[in-house]
Structure formats: C-alpha cells, structure tokens
C-alpha cells in the first residue's frame, strides 16, 4: 500500500470535514443575516462597561415594565 493512498484519503477526509461544517453552518442559518453579526461583535466592550457602571448606579432599581 503506497503512501499516496493514505495522503489522498487524508486530504479527502479533511475536505469533507470542512464541507460538512459548511453545510451545518448554512443549515443553522449562519448565512441568513450577513450584516448584524458584524455590528454585534463591536458592542461587547460597551456592554461590559455598562455593567460595571450599573453596579454603582442602580442597585435598587426597579423595572418599569
């Protein structure tokens, strides 16, 4: 058994793994909205800042709704 068979099968398996990952991602709807995630990822920092402020400011705050 030549090494070429092993290399070929590895390369095909790796390709198929990525292909399956792609199909899975499409099925989960990751390609449905290509804009919002790009904005959402930039919020992260501000939310953390918010939380630290919140502890100081509003400990006994009630929600209106």
């Amino acid at each position: 058994m030549s090494v070429i068979y092993m290399l070929l099968s590895i390369s095909v398996i790796v390709a198929i793994v990525f292909f399956v990952a792609f199909i899975y991602a499409v099925k989960k709807g990751q390609f449905d909205d290509s804009y919002t995630p790009s904005v959402r990822m930039l919020f992260e920092d501000e939310i953390i800042k918010e939380k630290s402020n919140k502890k100081k400011l509003s400990t006994n705050q009630k929600n209106k709704f």
């Binding site: 800042k49 402020n53 919140k54 509003s58 929600n63």
Partner: peptide, 9 residues
C-alpha cells in the same frame, strides 16, 4: 426609560 435602566449608551 433608557437612562433609568442605564441604557444611554
């Protein structure tokens, strides 16, 4: 509403 809930960001 937003300022009460610390959402002025």
């Amino acid at each position: 509403i937003f300022s009460e809930n610390d959402l002025t960001c």
